[in-house]
């Protein structure tokens, strides 16, 4: 039986892990490869690396970062951030990514999801969806780090992306991200029920209880950054907690 997955996320800018990406006050946390190796030894099931570089120099550095992480990492690596074409995806894969996350560019042109899935396989095509609650009680896709509202229904977009070939959905609550108030469980439930592929819950987690709640709401994997960065051994503690609660984790 498949176990649930615990995914530490590295926000990387110009080759360094940073914190506070979506907010003011970026802080340099350290080298991505060191974080990745530490998380693997703590029991992480995969690593997600999001490149938030704003410049071309930063994007070139990201490829070196992926190579360095790959050299030390024996678990899957998903890389996202600024993927606009099949060539972008290919470069990330050749550098050592196992899966590629597409976000804004896929919203603009869903054919990109189809092209990546056809070329590299559905298991390689992760669609990253940033969703914000609407006044009407639904969820709307936002892009470009939340600066653009698309008017697109997040659940409908998840379904469309999977029809176009996405093999996994990385679902981030824009409202909860960075708030430490827990994942948006209504959002997780709605998307997990709408698609057959695995859904990764993201945005808002600050403890293992939040992760348990997201898994019970239908998520197949849970992603977090800060709580893992700040506390050594946290991945293992989360897994112990989930195991005590009857959730199957990889030992």
């Amino acid at each position: 039986m498949l176990t649930v997955r615990i995914l530490p996320c590295l926000d990387v800018r110009d080759g360094r892990v940073v914190k506070g990406v979506r907010f003011a006050g970026l802080r340099d946390m350290g080298a991505p490869a060191e974080f990745a190796a530490r998380y693997e030894s703590e029991g992480a099931d995969e690593i997600v690396l999001l490149d938030v570089s704003a410049t071309n120099e930063g994007r070139a550095a990201a490829l070196d970062t992926i190579r360095a992480v790959r050299d030390v990492l024996s678990i899957p690596l998903t890389v996202g951030g600024g993927v606009r074409s099949v060539d972008d995806a290919r470069r990330l894969l050749e550098a050592g990514a196992d899966k590629v996350g597409v976000n804004s560019a896929a919203v603009r042109d869903p054919e990109l999801v189809r092209e990546i899935a056809q070329r590299f396989g559905a298991q390689c095509a992760v669609v990253a969806i940033d969703a914000a609650a609407t006044a009407a009680g639904g969820y709307e896709v936002v892009t470009h780090s939340g600066t653009e509202r698309t008017g697109l229904d997040a659940v409908a977009w998840a379904r469309t992306a999977v029809e176009f070939g996405a093999g996994e959905v990385l679902l981030t609550s824009f409202d909860r991200d960075g708030t430490r108030s827990g994942y948006d469980l209504v959002l997780v439930d709605a998307v997990a029920n709408a698609v057959r592929v695995p859904v990764i819950a993201s945005g808002g987690a600050s403890d293992a209880g939040h992760m348990l709640a997201a898994l019970r709401a239908g998520a197949h994997a849970v992603l977090a950054a800060s709580i893992f960065h700040e506390s050594r051994g946290e991945v293992g503690r989360v897994k112990e907690f989930l195991s005590r609660e009857g959730v199957e984790v990889r030992p």
């Binding site: 039986m1 498949l2 176990t3 649930v4 997955r5 099931d45 559905a122 298991q123 093999g167 996994e168 057959r196 592929v197 695995p198 197949h220 994997a221 990889r250």
Partner: peptide, 10 residues
């Protein structure tokens, strides 16, 4: 079942 099977299995 969820397809693709993505993750760790015994």
């Amino acid at each position: 079942v969820v397809v693709p099977q993505l993750g760790w299995n015994r």
